[in-house]
Amino acid sequence: MKIELTRQKVHNEFAKKVELISGQNLFACYQCGNCTAGCPVAFAMEIGPHEVIRYTLLGLEEETLGVNTYWLCASCLQCTSRCPKGIDIARVMDALRMVVLRKKERKDHIQIPEFPEGFLEKVPQIAFVSGFRKFLS
């Protein structure tokens, strides 16, 4: 519930990595919440996209990576098209996925063996190719 801020915390590694991978300047975000307002899957998210950006900016790595927000993002770019400050929030969500997937533990977000019966035959390859790119390390 409480955080201590120092300039190292503000210029933390986590935020820098996310900014590098996504190519976005998180300081430009003035927390207007337009992205959360327009996100079609926000209803299922523990915290909204604008809060994820805020948490990242403040260097709260565990809390940011602990939520399902960036795993639920379907890269539909509705947020990016409406951001008044021109931040590409979809890229930030992708960057967060990359941060987790590129970690040493190489932990995948989905386990293929756990797919239900007949799932592989039913679902088109597009879903697998894009899904595996987004969820497998």
């Binding site: 519930m1 409480k2 955080i3 201590e4 801020l5 120092t6 927390q31 604008h50 809060e51 805020r54 948490y55 403040l58 709260l60």
Partner: peptide, 12 residues
């Protein structure tokens, strides 16, 4: 405090 994350904020 940072009301946007709802966190108490302390700065030395």
């Amino acid at each position: 405090v940072d009301t946007l994350t709802g966190k108490m904020v302390e700065v030395a």
